[in-house]
Design a protein around this nucleic acid. Structure first.
Lengths: 132, 132
DNA sequence: TCTTGAGCCTGTAGTGGCTACAGAGTGTAG
DNA sequence: CTACACTCTGTAGCCACTACAGGCTCAAGA
């Protein structure tokens, strides 16, 4: 039997902030691990995998709610590819919408800034744009 | 003398949520307006302009801290176009970075989802991508 | 005049996704 | 034996709102 991982070991193995691990447990994203006689949490490699899954999903912008769904599908195992695809597809559309929003913003901002003289004058196109 | 605007009038004139107006006052984004004998806030058209400025800036993704800076520059008046430009330019770079991030995410997600069969099978490329 | 409804006031709590800290206990290396 | 690194818990803070409770006031209609 291998030595159990402590919280900091899990943190280091995944790059996840050590406090976040406790937070994820509290809100049901990570399962509560067994405890040793001292009350310390005892993790194993399966926890590392699960936390990596969560972190990778977060990097891709999934909300914790979406991740809960994904994990639920993982746990119920097979024949759920269609459901997984639905979650991912939904999120993909959210991402695309955010990109479009930001591109609109980028356009307005860059056009405005480029009209700036940079000189110390009272006429400021940025201010004018914001004032509307 | 015109009738002063109530909070809800300012809200309707700008589209800003009525509670948000109070919040902006509390954190110093909007100046505390004079009060009537009944304790009600009394706004005037200058407040409408200022709140519109704030909302337009928020739409462009400026943080409230950045907006505080911009408003400070507005209030100190002239010869600050260079400073305004600096704030806007800084924010523009943040926006561009966010777009790049999201485009990376979009690429990964769309490639992964498109590999999905959509059939009810245990093999799921989305899950593999997230796990791997 | 009375009632009704819409507005006002305040403070406080909740959202998401963490992050940090206080205060107390435990495990281990030198 | 003493440091020090780690553990545990609960709680509070961050951003930018949003909502609600409980009480007050104002204006229009019957």
């Amino acid at each position: 039997m291998k030595k159990a991982l402590r919280r900091i070991d899990l943190s280091r193995a995944t790059g996840c902030n050590i406090e976040t691990i406790r937070y994820y447990e509290k809100i049901g994203i990570l399962p509560a691990p067994p405890r040793g006689g001292n009350g310390y949490r005892q993790y194993d490699p399966a926890h590392v995998d699960r936390l990596r899954f969560v972190m990778r999903s977060r990097e891709l912008g999934f909300t914790l709610d979406e991740i809960r769904s994904l994990l639920g599908l993982v746990d119920r195992g097979a024949q759920s590819c269609a459901e997984v695809q639905a979650v991912a597809q939904g999120h993909l559309e959210t991402v695309r919408a955010r990109i479009r929003d930001l591109q609109r913003v980028e356009k307005v901002l860059s056009e405005t800034v480029s009209r700036c003289s940079g000189r110390d004058v009272p006429e400021c196109p940025v201010m004018d744009a914001l004032a509307g």
